[in-house]
Write a protein that binds this DNA or RNA. Structure first.
Lengths: 110, 110
DNA sequence: CGGAATCCTGGTGGATACTG
DNA sequence: CAGTATCCACCAGGATTCCG
């Protein structure tokens, strides 16, 4: 279960849907860097877990809207809390990384 | 960055260290199911990110303690919030999954 | 437009053996 | 005890192609 939360694509999709429904290619463009295969799989997974709903419009150019369910909406706050944390502590983390890399890179003996 | 948060091992390690310092094999046993390779890699990663500290005791049987830093501590609440969410909504998710699997498994035509 | 199917590769992570 | 090193299997995921 946490695996899906840890999945960056799922998180990004949920974030995109926060503003309202989106179409397939809208999501694809908005997210950027995701292959349509992964987007499909991600959307399927989220739909299966009841996080989003898939609405098909049987129009001439097919149209499919994805939107968050109540469940999906409820996921936003904890995820955003995590995002906030990451954003706030990014500097500290990068600093720690640099210090670590210096300690372990150049010379361990001294 | 979110990749590390999404990493289940990292999360489990942080949770284990919440109660206080732990030794390598203590963590290994407590977590269970993690290979010592992954534990090492996970600990290295967390140490590099400044989430944990590694303390070596140069005793006859070597001893290494791992403990959360302030940064690591600060990560607990958002992670636990996420855990809470998952726990609370697990039933709804499983229900959604079953419904989905029924819709998409047996027969789509009818 | 939205998606399914196929192919293929790189990285993740387990198992094992060795070391200080 | 606390790692490190190596080998290897698996599969997540990108690119491409075809379809309704």
């Amino acid at each position: 279960m946490l695996s899906r939360i840890g999945d960056k694509w799922s998180v990004l999709v949920v974030m995109q849907l926060a503003d309202g429904p989106r179409r397939f290619n809208e999501l694809k463009r908005a997210i950027g860097g995701i292959s349509q295969r992964m987007l499909t799989l991600t959307l399927r997974g989220l739909e299966r877990d009841g996080m989003i709903t898939r609405t098909v419009f049987e129009t001439v150019p097919p149209r499919v809207d994805y939107s968050l369910t109540e469940l999906g909406q409820s996921l936003r706050s904890p995820v955003e809390a995590l995002g906030m944390w990451a954003f706030e502590h990014l500097p500290a983390i990068e600093k720690a990384r640099q210090a670590f890399d210096i300690r372990h890179g150049p010379d361990k003996s001294t």
